[in-house]
Simulated scan of single mutants.
Amino acid sequence: MAGQATASSNGRDLVEPHDLPITEGLRENIHRFRKMDDDVELKPILDRLAPYPPLDRTPSAETEVRLPEIVGGLGWAWHWPR
Rank of each mutant, 00 (worst) to 15 (best):
M1A: 13
M1H: 13
A2E: 12
A2I: 10
G3K: 00
G3M: 03
G3P: 00
G3T: 00
Q4E: 13
Q4S: 12
A5C: 04
A5Y: 03
T6F: 05
A7N: 13
S8D: 08
S8L: 06
S8Y: 06
S9L: 06
S9C: 01
N10P: 10
N10Q: 15
G11K: 11
G11D: 11
G11F: 05
R12Q: 09
R12L: 11
R12A: 10
D13G: 11
D13M: 08
D13F: 05
L14Y: 07
L14C: 10
V15D: 04
V15E: 06
E16P: 05
E16I: 08
H18L: 10
H18A: 09
H18I: 08
L20T: 02
L20N: 01
P21H: 09
P21D: 12
P21M: 06
I22R: 06
T23I: 11
T23N: 09
E24H: 04
G25P: 11
L26M: 08
R27H: 13
R27T: 12
E28L: 15
E28P: 09
E28G: 15
I30C: 00
I30G: 00
H31W: 07
H31F: 05
R32D: 05
R32T: 01
F33A: 01
F33D: 00
F33Y: 05
R34W: 01
R34G: 04
R34H: 05
K35N: 03
K35F: 00
K35H: 03
M36S: 14
M36Y: 11
M36H: 14
D37G: 10
D37T: 13
D38Y: 08
D38S: 11
D39S: 12
D39A: 11
E41M: 08
E41H: 15
E41W: 06
E41N: 10
K43W: 05
K43C: 09
K43D: 06
P44A: 05
P44E: 04
I45R: 12
L46T: 03
L46S: 04
L46W: 03
L46E: 02
D47M: 14
D47H: 10
D47S: 13
R48Q: 12
L49R: 06
L49E: 07
A50I: 00
P51Q: 09
P51T: 10
P51R: 11
P51C: 07
P51E: 11
P51M: 12
Y52Q: 13
P54Q: 01
P54A: 00
L55Y: 06
L55C: 10
L55F: 10
D56Q: 14
D56T: 14
R57P: 08
T58V: 09
T58G: 02
P59V: 08
S60D: 08
S60A: 10
E62R: 09
E62Y: 02
E62I: 03
E62G: 03
T63R: 03
T63Q: 06
E64A: 10
R66P: 02
R66F: 12
R66L: 15
L67I: 14
P68L: 04
P68K: 05
E69C: 01
I70A: 02
V71D: 00
V71N: 01
V71F: 08
G72I: 08
G73N: 00
G73Y: 01
L74W: 01
L74C: 07
L74E: 01
L74S: 04
G75V: 12
G75M: 13
G75T: 12
W76T: 15
A77R: 15
A77E: 15
W78P: 03
W78F: 12
P81D: 00
